[in-house]
Write a protein that binds this DNA or RNA. Structure first.
Lengths: 197, 197
DNA sequence: GTGTCAATTGACACTGTGTCAAGCAACAGG
DNA sequence: CCTGTTGCTTGACACAGTGTCAATTGACAC
């Protein structure tokens, strides 16, 4: 066989990724993904028994390619709290464009597929935990303003990093990713930190 | 007839609103909305020829009940830029919980219903314009930091006000709306404004 | 050569959207 | 009282997308 299992599976995941990236309005139907991957629709179901499982698997796949866990671990190992925040912002900021297509597709599921949504929540929970850890490090360093609780500060940073989500609705932002990440850093520091160190 | 047109139409819109509010995973199918409103599914199509039109109409309906345009106009008439920002934040902040169900439902449309999405973008554009106007007033008052362009500042405030959107994915925030709006004001002022006045 | 495994084709059930036709109850004006 | 209109009803249907099933093919491994 010139096509080992992993090959086909990878081709499927690549196809799903590409389909999801094509923005809102893109057809992310099983048939489309199968056609993209060059296999039949039914063969797709041999690899992924349901659409939601394919979407979740695509998330994990993107995680691996983008080395998200590695990057988040790196943020955990940073020396100062501020470095930790920087590294986290870079990891998550770079992740968002890839991930928001999946978010859209999962949100789009009419049937409340509890298991799939739980898996997604877990993933997001992990990323969010990285955010909270960075904030906590800042508290330990004593540079975090005590106007905000840990949860509040996490929510604020999360919001700043997630503004790209709104591009789903109004695709008129026009910022480059680098611009965006740089600005996020500035605003996060200005908003959350006291001018101490 | 004990049921004039407007009565049925209002009942439909109320039903749709309620259905949309029941969070992600809620069934916002035409049949469900019809059952809620106490009419047949086909009668629903007599009032709204398509699902997307019902969703958009529900947005307008919520607008009216919540008097969003009035509130945004009030923000336009505020004396100082800071008051203007405050009024805007209050109007839009109170609007979000009602509106994010519609956002979710519209995002969920697989068929890229261009017209409906355009109408939605228009609505969001109007609200966003209110945001930009508030920011611009702050520039005129000379209290807005010139580190950010108008677009950047608008995006930041928009992000801060829209963090609730993420509750769709992780419903663990637990903030009260008042808490949220108060915090948004603080963070917006701290982030965007120079400590001048 | 036989078994196995991935993938194929073709058919089917089910759900949700949107359409169509025929009928029915109430009300209005002659 | 009859007639037309209006708002809604029931019942049927077409269509798209998901997910399932059975029978078949083609290549590789032992």
């Amino acid at each position: 066989m010139s096509r080992p299992i992993t090959d086909t599976r990878t081709r499927i995941l690549d196809s799903a990724w590409k389909a999801l990236e094509e923005g809102p309005g893109a057809s992310v139907r099983m048939a489309d993904i199968a056609r993209r991957a060059g296999i039949s629709r039914q063969a797709l179901y041999l690899h992924f028994p349901a659409r939601t499982e394919l979407l979740i698997a695509t998330t994990r796949y993107i995680d691996e390619i983008k080395q998200i866990d590695t990057r988040l671990a790196a943020s955990r190992n940073a020396e100062t709290g501020l470095e930790r925040l920087d590294t986290y912002i870079e990891a998550w900021g770079n992740y968002i464009p890839e991930i928001h297509g999946v978010a859209r597709a999962l949100l789009a599921m009419q049937d409340s597929d509890a298991a799939a949504k739980l898996a997604w929540d877990d993933r997001m929970g992990a990323v969010r935990e990285g955010c909270a850890a960075a904030i906590r490090a800042l508290q330990d360093d004593g540079v975090l303003s005590d106007d905000y609780t840990l949860d509040q500060a996490t929510d604020i940073l999360w919001a700043l990093l997630s503004v790209r989500q709104w591009e789903l609705l109004r695709e008129t932002c026009g910022w480059s990713q680098a611009q965006y990440i740089a600005l996020t850093k500035t605003i996060a520091q200005r908003s959350l930190l006291q001018n101490r160190s």
